[in-house]
Computed example of a mutant assay.
Amino acid sequence: MPDFARLDDFLESTDTDGYLIDADSTDSDQYYLSGFDAPDPFVTLYDGETHLLFPRSLEFGRAKRESRATTVERYVDFDHAELVEEHGSEAAVSHVLARFLESYGVDSVAVPPRFPLRTADGLRARGVDVTPDTDGTITEIRATKTDEEIEHVRAAQKANEASMQAAEDLLSAARVADDGTLQYDGEVLTSERVKEEIEVTLLRHGCSLDETIVACGADAADPHDRGSGPLTAGEPIILDIFPRDKTTKYHADMTRTFCKGEPSDTVREWYDLTERAKTAAFDALEPGATGADVHDAVCDVYEAAGLPTLRSDDRAETGFIHSTGHGVGLDIHELPRLSPSGDELEPGHVVTIEPGLYDPDIGGIRIEDIAVVTEDGYENFTEYEQRLVV
């Protein structure tokens, strides 16, 4: 059960009666606050306890069984049909919500930064005070993981490593054709074929993903290029896998860079530098340090080697051109930030460390582990070996 003491403090400091979310459970704040997974939008009210309101009866029984809410109600419980007759279908919704809030003595609500404007306007028209929570208090609360959440990430990372092994096995078993492309089972080995192997392996381990990165050569020089087409010997291949556990909804994240055959001297040099940058970042990772401190440690390594970073040149298009890492949990990118704007790190923060170097003439190198900040440092969840040549 999450600790909502910080949300209680927020409501008290803003003199609001409750916190309201109107979204489906793909909104991670909704899922976290409600403790319920539903594909259609519903309303969650937190006033020290959690109350759910559904437009229809479809999810009503399951919500009573599965959610951690104190109460579960439907529009019909607030005379929705009569309100439709009196006010029309659109206005009736705001009347239902107002009655729902009134039943808990709630006259004012805070809402997350992204909140339906129609819902806010409708409640204001019914006399409810609606205040935007521009800081995203629940998102901030989610950044500090419970022991249970940490285990969820750890389990997702185990599946992630199995999928990385399956991908590396494909690359290892491939042969180099005369034209320099990789071949496997008599066919050209493509980015798409490796992604398929990754996805199938993750499904077998209870995880899934919408996209993954298998990018070779110049494609790998763009940090978010998903990669496509034939894979080539002698060029770095970035594999960045970020699955989500289908049961717990928690993510993991890991990147490795491989080269089939002999890499260039520059690729080897960049790989060694990136290993050193990752080590420097972990050396800086501890409670009380800031995300900016960790990011600076990476920039120090690259800049000392004469390579550009966004810290040394905010217009740089090659070199180290992204932040050092990010939080991971219900979202693949969430707080805290390991970047120039990164705030103080706390025990329970789950973060990636992912330095990298990029240049279309050379390719890309990135190595990424995932770890949790602890009371006395950190614990790295990642057990997967680092190697360049396969």
Rank of each mutant, 00 (worst) to 15 (best):
K64P: 10
D135V: 12
E66K: 12
Y46Q: 03
T16K: 15
E85S: 11
D29R: 06
T137P: 06
T119E: 06
R118G: 08
L33N: 02
Y32S: 02
D79R: 15
Y32E: 01
D129E: 15
A92D: 08
A69R: 01
P113Y: 06
A69S: 03
V111E: 01
V84W: 04
A91L: 09
L58N: 14
A98E: 10
F78P: 12
A81M: 13
F54I: 00
F60R: 15
D22Y: 08
S89P: 02
T139F: 10
Y19H: 10
L123F: 07
G18R: 00
R65H: 11
R126W: 10
A92F: 05
V106S: 06
R68T: 04
A91D: 10
D129H: 15
D37V: 07
S67K: 06
F100E: 00
V84A: 08
D40R: 15
L117S: 11
V128C: 14
L33R: 01
E49S: 13
E73W: 05
P112K: 02
V106T: 12
P39M: 11
E86P: 03
E85R: 13
S108F: 09
R62D: 15
T44V: 14
D129L: 15
E73R: 13
A92I: 08
A69G: 02
L97W: 08
K64R: 15
P55W: 04
E59V: 03
E102T: 10
V109R: 01
Y32W: 05
E102H: 10
I138H: 06
V111G: 00
T131W: 12
G88C: 06
E73C: 05
L97D: 03
V106W: 00
F42T: 00
R62A: 15
V72Q: 04
E73D: 11
D29W: 00
D77A: 15
D107P: 08
G35Q: 05
F54R: 00
E49F: 07
F54T: 00
T70H: 03
L53D: 05
E82A: 15
L123Q: 09
D40W: 12
L117G: 08
D22H: 10
P39N: 13
T131H: 15
